Computed example of a mutant assay.
Amino acid sequence: MNHYDVAQSMAEPNREVAERNKMQFGFISGSSDTEPVAFQKAPPTATLVTVTVLQFPSSDAAGTAAREFEEVDFDINPEENKRVSIGKYPAAHAHWRPGTPTIGSTIAHGNYTVSVFVSTASADLPLLTSLVEKTYTAQFPRLDKLPPLSPEQVMRTDLDPEDMKRRVLNPNKLGVPSLGGLATNTMQGFLHLQTDREAAKQLYSAGNVEYVTMGQAYSAKTYSYNTKGIAQGFGTGSSQLLDGAIVYRSKDEDSAKALWSGLAAKPDPALTPTGVPDSKCADEPKPGSNAKYYLCVVRYRNYVGTVWSTQPQDSQQRAAAQYAVLANSQ
C-alpha cells in the first residue's frame, strides 16, 4: 500500500500525515471473532481488530507520524474524545469516546508505526485497552525480525527467490508483482487473505506449506461495507478473482499429498479432469455467492495447484494447464 491507501483503515486526513512524513510501505490486516457474511455488517456482538503497519525512512519520522496520526484522529471529535494509556506501552498514543465500544491507538516501533483499531460488543475500556496491548505484544516481535528496507533495496530485491512464479498458471500474462495478483508468500502472509484463518492455518500446517504463489487469485482490496477507518470494514477475507490460480509448495511429497487431500475434500468423481494425474474437482460455491463454482486441485511432486471457474469444463481445462505448467517447470 501507499499513502493513498492509508484511508482504508485510518481517518482520511491521515493520508497527508503519511505523505508528509514520507511513508514508504505499509500493510493493513483485520480480523473478527465471528464468521463474516459478505455484504453484511458485522454483528454488534463481534470483536474486531484492524492493524495498520507503515514503514518510514527513520525512527524519528515514524515517531513524528505516530504523534500526528493521534492528533488527527483525536481532533475529529475533541470535545468528546478522551486520551487513555495502554498498559505496558506508555509510549502508545490512544483515545476513546466514553460510552462507545471502540478505541484507536498508534505507536512508533523503530522505523514503523503500528495503528490498532478495536471494536467490541460493549463500551468496556479495560477490555479495549487490553486488546490493544495484546496486539502490540504480538506485532512487535514480527517487526523486530523485519529489517526496514530503503527504496533502493526494494528495487534490487529478488522478486522470485524461491522460483515459484513460473510454476503458477498465469493466463493474463501478469508480469508485475502485486498482492493477490502475482505474489509469493510464506504461510503467514497467505493467511491474511483467508476468511477463516484458524481453519486455513490447520490445513496448510498439516500440508507443511512453505510458500504460496498466487496468479491473479485475489483482489488487493478487502471487503469494506462500513465507514472507512473502522474495524468493521475488514475481517471478511479478500475477494477471490475468477481467473486465478494458486500453487503451494510443501516441504516434501508426503506433505503435498496431505494438502491435496484437504483441498476439495469432497470431490465429485464425475468432474475429474481426463488424463490429468493426481487431480480432482468439486462444486464449492464461493462464500457470499449463489453461483456455481468449481474448484479443481492438482498435485505434482511436492507442489499442489488449485484453479477454479463457474463452468466445470473451463475449470477442468485450467487444471490440465496448471498440471502441465508444474510438470514442465522442473
Rank of each mutant, 00 (worst) to 15 (best):
D268T: 03
Q316P: 07
M10I: 02
G207S: 09
A108L: 12
V297N: 13
I107T: 08
S105E: 04
L125V: 11
K165P: 01
Q55V: 09
T184I: 12
P13L: 05
A42G: 09
I230D: 08
A319D: 05
D278L: 05
S329Q: 00
T195A: 15
D278P: 07
N14H: 01
S130K: 11
V114Y: 01
M155S: 12
Q8V: 01
D278M: 08
E162L: 07
V276S: 05
A320W: 02
G104V: 01
L242E: 15
G275H: 10
F190Q: 14
V6T: 02
M1T: 05
E198I: 11
H93W: 11
E253T: 11
N81V: 00
D163E: 07
P57D: 11
D243M: 11
A258L: 14
G30I: 08
V212E: 09
S279H: 09
Q40V: 04
P36C: 03
W308C: 01
A256E: 13
A91Y: 00
R156S: 02
Y204C: 00
Q313F: 05
K221C: 09
K286Q: 15
R15L: 03
G181A: 07
P43H: 02
P161V: 03
S32E: 03
E12T: 02
A200D: 12
T137V: 01
L326M: 14
M187S: 15
G189M: 15
A7E: 09
V116C: 03
Q330D: 11
I246Y: 09
G244Y: 12
L295H: 14
S279K: 08
L182P: 10
K173P: 00
Y204I: 00
F39W: 15
A327P: 00
T186C: 12
S279R: 04
I103M: 10
Q311N: 15
Y223T: 13
T236V: 13
Q194D: 06
G288A: 15
M164H: 07
I107H: 00
S119K: 15
E19D: 14
S178V: 05
A108K: 05
S224N: 14
E152G: 03
A94L: 04
T64W: 00
V17N: 00
A321S: 07
A258Q: 13
Q313N: 12
N328L: 03
N81G: 05
G288C: 14
E253Q: 13
Y211F: 15
D254A: 15
N81F: 02
F69L: 14
A321R: 06
T34K: 11
V212S: 09
I246P: 11
S309Y: 04
H109L: 04
D33K: 00
V116T: 04
G229P: 02
A321G: 01
G110N: 08
F74H: 06
L159A: 13
D144S: 02
Q322K: 02
V247L: 13
A231S: 12
Q153I: 05
A245D: 07
S224G: 10
T129Q: 08
Y294I: 02
K257M: 05
Q139K: 11
R83F: 02
G175Q: 12
D73G: 11
W96A: 13
R20C: 05
